[in-house]
Nucleic acid binder design. Structure first.
Lengths: 342, 342
DNA sequence: ACCTTCCATGCAAACCTTTGCATAAATATT
DNA sequence: AATATTTATGCAAAGGTTTGCATGGAAGGT
């Protein structure tokens, strides 16, 4: 049976009082007498009264909804970040509306349009690899809605930001490769307009430089996406070049995984002939053969912290607010796809 | 600068007309004169007017929000289902609020409470493995909110339902194992109160029966979760028993993957000594060594169809509605972890 | 010139909640 | 006994939108 939700005035009518009295009673206002309060409360329970969030929202211009936009949701990385975010949000009374941009600027803009229409109280976003303009973000911020950018930066956009230290992670990985004797280290980098990918590449290059190794353009490739297929394509290309590497630092575990079958099928051994290091430390990475050395990222914390910062911004007075920029530390996880130190 | 959104009456004041005229003009009502209409429309554009969904929702008791509850979001299965769901919803104007129950009944109930408070227009849910009571679902349905149950069934709850044919998938997998000469086929089954797991087990048992093979209780284990760790634990237990299997049908790819290192480390070969088949066909499954034979499920379609059915129910008149029950077909994907047919 | 008809627009209520102000009754003060 | 004070409650507006009904004017018909 479809039945209407009970409202304040339903309770009011039942008790012969006014709706305002009921409202105050339920908010435990000191203005209301003890008896009235009790009867209101028990009647509310009897009618299974739930305040209408829409009406409240209309009044105080809040929706208690946070918008989240990620490039995709099916991969380990963003799914885990969202997981952290949700765990944070769980007890705050806020809800999450999640959208996927699928690495398309148009979809991202459209999603932001939708979220803006839905009047979200805040936005947490990791921009697409196509996102070069910030107008849509600026619009958002100008209408007074706090925005947190996470994982991938929007360089000229002013807001709270939460990242992982991609540079540091990459540097450590490549430095490790060098320490284990590798000299011809290839890099399968991601789309160059993503800050994460640029940072990882810089980490790679700096590690080479600091160890006095000349970079070889032949060994640096840019993959178009983050899937095993992209890795497969890239490694085929790479192994056809004259310069065969003795190590590969991939932008991603998925890309690294995609190279494995190709490498092995060419009769090359991992790590004896080619060391392999990925990035992300996905849960499955330890189950491949050989198990994959990778750079672990505090993804869950990334999501959690983004939520915490946004929430703080939402509750803060908008005047004296200064934007925060947090950088979390990654960690190299050694496994069989790279050589041991000695 | 934080500035208020333009409202109908802002436009009205600017043009010296009434708010109702503006509303009608923007809805292209035939009651409004051409000139007025044009001026309203251009003024609306100038002021960047966006209708306030909360006010509209308050009026017609709709939120255009769909609640989604899944046990977890970080795994491939549910993330992909949500992906399908989101793609469906994208152009409908509906938004998705997603919650994770983490296989906890209490969390599930709490999430439903939250979604009910948020006045969602519909609910799509895959219940936890703890969910035995349906009261929370019944409450939902009784307040007139359409519910779609997907993947995992709530046996005595009446609603739209969308499943994958787990029985069929399991039957095919085990039947294939038998056809390739396996006789001592173990089953690492999932939590017994999940319908999906029970169906897979029934498929397993029926395949044995139809091929005249006696089931051996020693070969049937129940794992407590869907992670590689659970698989690892189970296989250690299994291989310590007197009866060593010549094949394993796991409830899950993740569980199957967890068994691999243990099997290989015991000096057993896959598939020569032990064939291995999983369920789900996760994207990484083809990258393990040996690559994993698995039962592919149309997960994306599962999410998509759930959305379509819910949407249809929401728009339908509530009277003459008859619940639907859709079953999608899985498909066995052969790889190296099982023996070839001849 | 008057009545009908039609077209374009405005008024006001409804959706539900919160809150400043007013009011009524009861008690305390002089 | 009359006024001041406290205590408990109601009224009404606001928030933004939609929509049935009423109204105003102009055009058409006789």
């Amino acid at each position: 049976m479809k039945r209407r939700h009970a409202t304040l005035s339903d309770i009011a009518k039942a008790l012969n009082v006014s709706a305002s009295t009921v409202s105050r009673a339920l908010h435990d206002s000191p203005l209301i007498g003890k008896e009235t309060k009790d009867s209101v409360i028990s009647m509310a329970k009897a009618l299974n009264y739930r305040p209408n969030q829409q009406a409240i929202g209309l009044l105080n211009k809040k929706t208690k909804i946070i918008g989240v936009i990620v490039p995709e949701i099916t991969g380990y990385f963003f799914a885990t970040a969202i997981n952290g975010l949700q765990d944070f949000v769980e007890n705050t009374g806020y809800k999450l509306i999640i959208g996927q941009s699928n690495e398309s600027f148009d979809q991202e803009a459209k999603l932001m349009e939708t979220l803006s229409l839905a009047r979200v109280d805040g936005l947490i976003i990791s921009p697409t690899s196509e996102t070069t303009s910030n107008i849509h973000l600026e619009n958002f911020r100008e209408s007074g809605i706090p925005v947190v950018v996470f994982d991938r930066d929007c360089p000229h956009f002013l807001s709270d930001k939460v990242f992982v230290d991609d540079y540091e992670g990459a540097f450590q990985a490549v430095n490790y490769l060098i320490k284990t004797g590798c000299r011809r280290i290839a890099h399968l980098g991601g789309p160059g307009n993503l800050t994460t990918c640029r940072c990882r590449k810089r980490g790679y290059l700096d590690a080479l430089i600091q160890n006095g190794i000349r970079q070889d353009p032949q060994l640096i490739l840019e993959v178009s996406g983050f899937t095993p297929d992209c890795g497969e394509e890239a490694i085929r290309d790479l192994l056809n070049r004259e310069a065969i590497p003795d190590a590969i630092f991939a932008v991603n575990d998925a890309v690294a995984i995609g190279t494995m079958p190709v490498i092995l099928e060419k009769g090359l051994r991992i790590p004896q002939d080619i060391s392999l290091i990925g990035f992300d430390d996905e849960p499955y990475s330890r189950f491949f053969k050989p198990s994959l050395t990778s750079v672990w990222q505090p993804v869950y914390e990334l999501g959690l912290l983004s939520g915490r910062i946004l929430m703080n911004h939402i509750l803060c007075s908008p005047e004296d607010y200064t934007y925060r920029r947090e950088i979390l530390k990654p960690e190299l996880v050694l496994r069989q796809s790279s050589k041991p130190l000695m």
